[in-house]
Each structure stands twice: as C-alpha cells, then as structure tokens.
Design a protein around this nucleic acid. Structure first.
Lengths: 124, 124
DNA sequence: AAACTACGATTACACTCGTAATCAAACAAA
DNA sequence: TTTGTTTGATTACGAGTGTAATCGTAGTTT
C-alpha cells in the first residue's frame, strides 16, 4: 500500500470526518487545531491525490476533495504494523502498557470486556 | 524525545535482547533475519549514538554498544502516539480492529482478561 | 480592458532515511 | 618495514517529508 506521512494523515483525518470538502474549508478546519500555511495544506492534498489516497471532483474552479483510502483500512494497516514491529504481533502487551501507565478509562474496560465475550462466543 | 526510524529500531531490538555487543556481532545477528550490508548497520549504529539512544564503551579497537533508550519507554512512547493519532487516544478501538481481523489468539484473550481484572481490582 | 485575486500546478529547499562507498588510522601479516 | 585488513568516521545520494514560495490561468473588480 502507499505510505501516508503524519502530516498527510492529519489532512485525511479531516476528510474522514466530512467530505467532500474544498481546499479552503479543509484549511480552515485544520487551523482550528494546528497552524498550517495554506500552501502547505495544498501541497499535502496534492501528494495525497498523487498517492491515490484522495481524489476530487471539480466544482468549476475549485476542487472538492474526498478520501479514497478508507479510515478503517488505514487504521488497520498502521496498527497492525506497529504491533508487529513493537510487540511481535501480540496486541495484549500494548494494552498492558496502557494499563500500567493509567491510560485506560472505565469505558475502555467495558469495550474490552465486550470484545472478549464476543470473541469467546465465536471462537470457543 | 528523539525519533527512531524503523531501520534504527531493528538495530535497537538486537541490543535490547543482548548487550553490550560489538558491531560485527550485531551485524551477524541482524543478518540471521534480514540482509543488510555491514556499512549500513554501522551507519545506523552511528545515528543511534548521535541521537543518544545508544552508547558504547571502547574495547581497544572495537566499540561495545549498548542501549540507553529503554525498550519499554520506546514501546510506550510509540504505541501511545499511534493510538493518539489513530484513535484519539482510546486503545479499545485498536483492539477491536484486531478482533475483527481475527488477529487475536487465545492467550491474547487470556492476558486481556487478566489485565482487566487487575485493573478493576485497583480502580473500582 | 486592466489590474487584481483565488486556485491548482510546479518548483524549492533543508532535513531525514535507507543504503552504502570512501577515508583514515590502528593492527596484523609477510 | 611495507602491505593488507579491520574498524569507526565521514561523505554520498536519491526518495520522502515538512514547510512553503512562485507560476500560470481563470474569474472578479474597477
């Protein structure tokens, strides 16, 4: 698959929340959080299009951008490969790290419990 | 913190398993798995030293390298930041992705169950 | 119509990364 | 002692990244 850089991923994040969007809207949205020059965002959009992760349709002079790469695919791919590199593919040590550092919330726990019972329903 | 590239992380992985090690031993060990030119590994070691992630002591002509950055810190930092970027900091959606893709093993489930009960012991 | 503006396209540029090759110095061998 | 070899240091070099500036052109304003 194509590689998405961190900066590019932030742009994609906006498009995953809402699309299609014009460049200027994307820029405005991004700058609620960060501080990016208009030109910078345009470059990132261009690169994403070139990589095939984003496409657009013309609305006369403007382009309306939308994601081609699905968020879930990206999440899946990225987390898979991180867990592979860091923990030889096992996800539980990652969760253990979060637990140790007190980065688990009550509803994380609830979700995990549900995941587990679903899994056991299916696989046991 | 300093950024560790993927290639650099592979070298660190070797040192985390065993240290200190001479460059040539590291190279040999790495080449059980991958195919890296000697010069390449030397470069990576140099960069790691420059970044402060690795240090060495001299054994006459050779250097004996050892990690300064701890594996757990690195794991913690990297997984934290990935989960932040991809899932707004929540770890359970990541695990959900693994579950959906059938990337959970029975002992992952066991570990998770234990984590959860420990967490509940402490936090409830 | 001339000047200005808003957009996307193209170009820029320093820095990191992967992947080495070359350099210099210290030993080892002949 | 001259020659090779081993080892770290320095240099190389194209691709990717973060961060823009400039160019060309289609609209907009005066």
């Amino acid at each position: 698959m194509f590689d998405i850089s961190n900066a590019e991923a932030e742009v994609l994040n906006v498009l995953w929340q809402q699309s299609p969007m014009s460049a200027s809207d994307i820029i405005e949205r991004l700058n609620e959080e960060r501080e990016w020059h208009e030109k910078t965002v345009k470059t990132l959009l261009n690169r994403l299009v070139k990589k095939g992760a984003v496409d657009f349709e013309k609305d006369k002079r403007r382009y309306l951008y939308f994601p081609v790469l699905e968020q879930s695919s990206y999440q899946q791919h990225a987390s898979q490969s991180l867990v592979q590199r860091l923990f030889s593919g096992r996800v539980s040590p990652l969760v253990a790290g979060f637990a140790k550092n007190n980065n688990l919330q009550k509803d994380d726990i609830e979700s995990l419990k549900k995941l587990i019972s679903d899994w056991e329903q299916e696989n046991d």
